[in-house]
């Protein structure tokens, strides 16, 4: 499978809930349907909560990757406005 290339990247390291989701949601809102957002974060709860909330809001979670001890990368594809 080909690697997905994100259309937009945000770095929300240092942020905690709910601002992790607020930032991710604002980023997604500003994108086109079908585009992919990459989120870099270091707040463990958000690595679970952001994908869950994004799915609740109708978006697709393509990847949740723990890249080291305390950092995660999420890939989210915008499915709806």
């Amino acid at each position: 499978m080909n690697e997905v290339t994100p259309d937009k990247k945000i770095d929300i390291r240092g942020l905690v809930c709910p601002y992790t989701f607020v930032r991710s949601k604002l980023a997604i809102e500003g994108m086109e349907i079908g585009q992919v957002l990459e989120v870099l974060l270091d707040y463990e709860d958000a690595s679970i909560n952001i994908p869950k909330s994004m799915q609740d809001h109708g978006q697709s979670v393509l990847k949740v990757d723990k890249i080291n001890d305390k950092e995660w990368i999420l890939l989210i594809r915008k499915e709806k406005d």
Partner: peptide, 13 residues
């Protein structure tokens, strides 16, 4: 406005 933004019915828009 974070508690508005996180609502699906509100959001940033």
């Amino acid at each position: 406005y974070s508690r508005h933004i996180i609502l699906p019915e509100v959001g940033g828009k």
